[in-house]
Computed example of a mutant assay.
Amino acid sequence: MTSWKIHFTASDTENAQSAHKRLIHQYGQYSISQADVIVALGGDGFMLESMHRYMASGLPIYGMNKGTVGFLLNDYQEENLFERLQAGVITKLHPLKMAATDMHGRVTEALAINEVSLLRESRQTAKIEISIDGKVKVEELTCDGVLVATPAGSTAYNLSAHGPILPVNAGALALTPISAFRPRRWRGAILPREAQIKFRIIESKKRPVSAVADAVEVRDVATVTVQEEPNICIKLLFDEEHNLEMRILDEQFQY
């Protein structure tokens, strides 16, 4: 493909908006229905927003860093964009699906690209029962919380909670406690991507817990189930010399 039909999107920062105007002037702007690719300008937060917003389109998303961290993004360059897109490497991601039932029986479903996390809402530690594929594996985790991370999200909150970094193609999920008090020696688990994880909140009225799937928060949950959603595929496009798989590998050697 010698030229690409691009849909540009940008965060609302002045820097990103200025780049947005220049790139549209140089390469044109196509609607989502006409485009071959989405080019997102911003930081990692905006990239996550774009992945959620456009995941139903099936279009690959090529991010360029106009933010701060830029882990999910390519370097910003205005030149040779068609050539960079043509040479890009596609990484396919599947989000997590969360189904959270609150203490009133209301069910909220949401998708998470990075992680689903359960967090205590008060000064009281949370007490959480954890089941995998219908079998109780942790009868009572006393903690600040617990999370399930995808490989793409394993270098984010999961890593800060001392969870493992997962290669993109590992076919696994990370189950990681957050500031666990008991059992003290349990450091979490690496689960197959097909696993269904269920959390049941013990003493939920006395020890309220919230569930968060990326930007969606549900307060006062009673039970939460989490599993990968295999029917949704998000395609990210990276420059060949620094693709996401390589970035995650390199993160394991940071010290």
Rank of each mutant, 00 (worst) to 15 (best):
E83W: 10
G145A: 02
S11V: 07
K206T: 10
R22F: 10
Q124M: 13
A10Q: 03
I202Q: 09
V212R: 08
T176S: 04
G45M: 05
Y76P: 10
I201G: 06
E139H: 07
K198L: 12
I32N: 10
F238M: 02
S33G: 13
N169T: 03
V212Y: 05
V146P: 00
S160L: 11
F46S: 07
F71Q: 01
E79R: 14
M55W: 13
V168M: 06
S122Y: 03
A87I: 03
Y30F: 15
G134K: 14
F82N: 15
V209T: 02
M47E: 04
E79G: 13
L141D: 00
A100M: 10
F253R: 14
E139D: 11
A213C: 04
I248P: 01
S33F: 07
Q34G: 10
H162P: 00
K5I: 12
R84W: 03
P208W: 10
W4K: 15
A174C: 04
A112S: 06
E229M: 14
L237T: 04
R185A: 02
D44S: 03
S3Y: 15
N158H: 14
S11W: 10
L81E: 12
R120P: 00
M246N: 07
A56S: 15
P60F: 15
E241W: 02
H7C: 14
T225L: 07
M1P: 08
M64A: 09
Q86K: 15
L175I: 01
K92A: 09
L166T: 03
D12A: 03
G88W: 09
Q252C: 11
A172P: 06
G70E: 06
K135Q: 15
A172E: 09
A126E: 00
I130G: 12
L111M: 02
D44M: 01
Y157S: 13
T225N: 08
T101R: 08
V89W: 08
